[in-house]
Design a protein around this nucleic acid. Sequence first.
DNA 1: TTGTAAGCGTTATCAC
DNA 2: GTGATAACGCTTACAA
Lengths: 340, 340
Amino acid sequence: MTELRSVPTLDDVARTAGVSTATVSRCLNSPERVVEQTRKRVMSAVEQLGYTPNFGARAMAAKRTFTIGAIIPTMENAIFARGLQAFQEELHARGYTLLVSSSLYQPEVEDEQIRSLVARGADGLLLIGHDRDPSVYSYLQSRAIPVLSAWVYLPESDQPTVGFDNRQSMRALAQKVIDFGHRRIGMISGVTKGNDRAAARLAGLRDALAANGLDPEAMPLIETPYEIENGAVALQSLMASDDPPSVVMCGNDVLAVGALRGARDMGLSVPDDVSITGFDDIELARIVTPQITTVHVPHREMGRKAAQALIDMVEKRSTGASVELKSTLQIRDSLRDLTR
Amino acid sequence: MTELRSVPTLDDVARTAGVSTATVSRCLNSPERVVEQTRKRVMSAVEQLGYTPNFGARAMAAKRTFTIGAIIPTMENAIFARGLQAFQEELHARGYTLLVSSSLYQPEVEDEQIRSLVARGADGLLLIGHDRDPSVYSYLQSRAIPVLSAWVYLPESDQPTVGFDNRQSMRALAQKVIDFGHRRIGMISGVTKGNDRAAARLAGLRDALAANGLDPEAMPLIETPYEIENGAVALQSLMASDDPPSVVMCGNDVLAVGALRGARDMGLSVPDDVSITGFDDIELARIVTPQITTVHVPHREMGRKAAQALIDMVEKRSTGASVELKSTLQIRDSLRDLTR
DNA sequence: TTGTAAGCGTTATCAC
DNA sequence: GTGATAACGCTTACAA
């Protein structure tokens, strides 16, 4: 039958073990400071009562939660999934718990969630990208909560970052595209407002154009949220021009996969009629046909390193140094080499 | 420069507003019980100090957190993303916050996370599927924490469920496959141990075989974790047989997409050489070529309904009734009709 | 309408 | 090694 006796507390454990609450607390937090025999007695009382420490009370007394908060722009697509998984694994291995929420790419939502995570006692925070209102950083600083920005590498920033150089990476890919003989280049970018990664990728492409004597201003460009459907629509709009591009470079793989479908639906062949490139190298990029040329990002390594760096900050072993990871080009069938 | 005064508390707000802590608390929780003038004074003090209530303290005092916990098997692929997103939106609309963690399909990990969410004061829990150790349910019952199982519909269960009939759904798809003239049917199933959805889908296929005079025992079957790569490997193994199946039915779309790639890598054409079906109807199923025949699951509706049902339980408006949602067949190009 | 004060379940600082 | 006991920040009777 339903036993509905109330939830056991430290007190209950102490009473049934015949010790003080202090001793029970010690058994749980620093067992070595308690004699074997007492510890056994206490532990069996814990077992018997099914005791679980109350998190809120613990946080309040210890001013420490072993909780790390992370806010990612979206969970809907796989962009952050792999990195976050690695982040969480590393945290877990070091005795921390991860709390995740998603901001839907909206700064106000992110703000709210930062406050919520802080109120919940997060010992440290992982944020994606670095471009946000300075008040966010000063708020966190006033509470002495370490923050780490990931998915970007900005050594000159006040805050530590763990990631790669989005601008340089896109520039490298664009250079390859140009080397392959493409001159009419179009871009489908993510929304750059409030998204420094998207902005950096766009800038990187422009860098490459300028460096090769092409006019960055003349490049056909569509900005649209990272959704497959949007990629499809954008591609069709770019290709409807009188002088359509020979290659469409996308701000990420999600848009690229959409662009691929858009081309297919339009009866265009990829890469014969138009080449398509992506960014991120998520699984999707290898699943579609043709496979998508993209920038490979070391997601798992980034997640792991971010966890290490953040914990070091939380545990005051460091004040936060930035870590740079290297991206690499993944040339696949969706990009045609016009030079041969 | 860096202001590092300590975090403001209710006390601070009370002091600067010149009222008692009780009044501040009231302003925050039931503003109508405080006179306009006082409220204004208090709110401006809140603003000025940048006060945020401490969650732990609040939970401890109020025994209520407006937090719902959810544990899903994985975040790595999109199976649960859409439903969870809707779940979270509905919670948010009703003033609740969602805490998510993933169990990696491991019951022990799930156990640990349930306890962690409970310790954090979750007012209610959403779990995926229903098949777990009874001690889990009795633990939750002893603490009077409402649980809801989603992604399944089991009216006869002790616990409320919100979902669809996995077995019947797969049976319906299999019947369609058989109607299309397929007799040599192979299956790539998810791991059925500890996963009632996977087990039900397998059972549904067997039901259909038996109902049509085919031998369920003779069906080539591979069980493997839900990963794209595994689907590819499994398909190649099934197709390497002397008498390969004319259709491979997969436990979900992730496996199906993998199977598709496996076939392609093997030089087989889908659906001419072999048909492939999936389950769930995630975005992926429409992106690959050919598009995958699958069972459409109303993810968003399921998430929304689950949130409503769970909140009703938490707020004691109901003791938990199960809700059935209907799945539908999505016949697409990956399934060949052999009858014409 | 507002204030007082008793918890809520821990941890940590002292003594013993 | 172990036990009192004072925080920790908030909510909520109960009083005023």
